[in-house]
Amino acid sequence: MAEIILHHYPLSLFAEKIRRILAYKKIAWRSVEQPIMAPKPELTPLTGGYRRIPVLQIGADIYCDTACIARRLEQLQPEPACLPADQAGLAALIEDWADHRFMSQVVPPVVVELLPVLPPGVLIDRAAMSPALSEEAIRRAAPHALGQARLSLDRLESQLHGRPFLLGDAFSIADAACFHPVWFLKQSARLSAEIEARPALAAWLARVEGFGSGDVRPMTAAEALAIARASEPTDVAGGEVAAAEEIRPGDTVTITADDYGPEESRGVVARLSAAEITVRRRDPVVGEVALHFPRAGYRIRKQ
């Protein structure tokens, strides 16, 4: 199998979610560090317009959004499992809550704390993705968001009382999704006290951090593009299309996140299911690639 390549940067919350899963599963991976803000000239040839981090690359198959990435990793290496069969629905619900609501509570107060050390212009860049991510909006949102985050931390503390992980004895995608906002909170020396004030939460954080960084080796973005150029998409077979589905394989579509980030990716539908969509696209830099997206959280428009 082609190498597993993660395009990310160190401070990315969502990349940390995937880095925890890779470490837990002991999957060897290659690390390509991408810029924290646009332009991303060595990422967009793979994704079209999609600029969020992380992106997983396996040859010429490109997986966007951590929900899609996590499930592909689970397919490639089912054990140890991150998607417990008997609690898959609950795990996915917690994942969605953490990736959206909990994350949105943690980001404003932490970003305000980190403003002196963040790269110049990063919030101007983020404001282009959503007005709610401008410096003014984040400063205004921070006090209320921190109060809401404390309520969420209390709930996690309660859930972790008497158990090592959120769903019981084993790490799952629920832990990975809740970990990255707590990990981001820890980036502020002042706000990390919120974690230490909750002993079960602090012990859980240390337990997940104890997985380490895993089997990772660096790779340049140019090397990753060369791998895509020398490969062909392989994960394009299968899928099922409901009779009522308006989009069919062979249709040209655009895919855009429904929360923030106006950039769109365009391609021809290769595979479609209730949960995911795969499109083929061609780029002059890398040739043909297959883009994989979850359907939850994305607008798909037939052209």
Score class of each variant (00 low, 15 high):
Phe293Ile: 07
Glu246Lys: 08
Arg217Cys: 03
Leu191Met: 06
Ala197Met: 03
Ile58Gln: 02
Arg140Lys: 13
Gln105Ile: 05
Pro41Tyr: 06
Cys178Met: 01
Glu276Tyr: 11
Ile277Thr: 09
Ile62Met: 07
Ser192Leu: 02
Gln77Arg: 15
Phe171Trp: 09
Trp97Lys: 03
Ile4Cys: 11
Ala149Phe: 07
Thr256Gln: 00
Leu153Gly: 04
Leu166Glu: 06
Gln87Asp: 04
Ala203Pro: 08
Asp169Pro: 06
Ile277Lys: 12
Arg101Ile: 07
Glu113Ala: 13
Val111Ala: 13
Gly59Phe: 05
Gln105Pro: 01
Met1Trp: 15
Ser265Lys: 01
Val208Gln: 09
Ile255Gly: 00
Asp215Ser: 13
Ala128Asn: 00
Ala206Gln: 12
Pro262Ala: 07
Phe171Pro: 00
Gln187Thr: 08
Pro45Gln: 13
Gln34Asp: 14
Glu194Asp: 14
Ala60Ser: 06
Gln303Asn: 06
Ala15Gly: 14
Leu166Ile: 14
Ile124Thr: 09
His144Asp: 13
Pro108Asn: 05
Ile62Tyr: 01
Ile94Thr: 12
Leu160Ser: 05
Pro218Thr: 05
Ala222Arg: 12
Val117Asp: 11
Ala170Thr: 15
Ala60Met: 04
Gly214Leu: 14
Arg190Ala: 08
Ala170Phe: 09
Ser213Phe: 10
Gln77Phe: 15
Tyr260Lys: 02
Glu79Gln: 13
Leu13Met: 10
Val216Leu: 06
Arg266Ile: 04
Arg19Gln: 11
Thr234Ala: 15
Arg126Ser: 11
Arg280Lys: 14
Gly49Met: 00
Asp215Phe: 11
Ala132Val: 04
Ala177Cys: 09
Ala67Arg: 09
Leu191Asn: 02
Ile173Tyr: 10
Ser231Gln: 13
Arg301Asn: 07
Ser265Glu: 07
Tyr298Val: 00
Val236Gly: 11
Ser31Trp: 05
His144Ile: 15
Pro262Glu: 03
Asp258His: 08
Gly121Asp: 02
Arg207Val: 12
Ala228Trp: 02
Pro294Leu: 10
Pro45Leu: 11
Ala67Phe: 12
Ala127Tyr: 01
Thr47Ile: 02
Ala15Trp: 01
Val111Ser: 11
Val112Trp: 00
Leu205Val: 14
Ala67Tyr: 03
Gly210Ile: 13
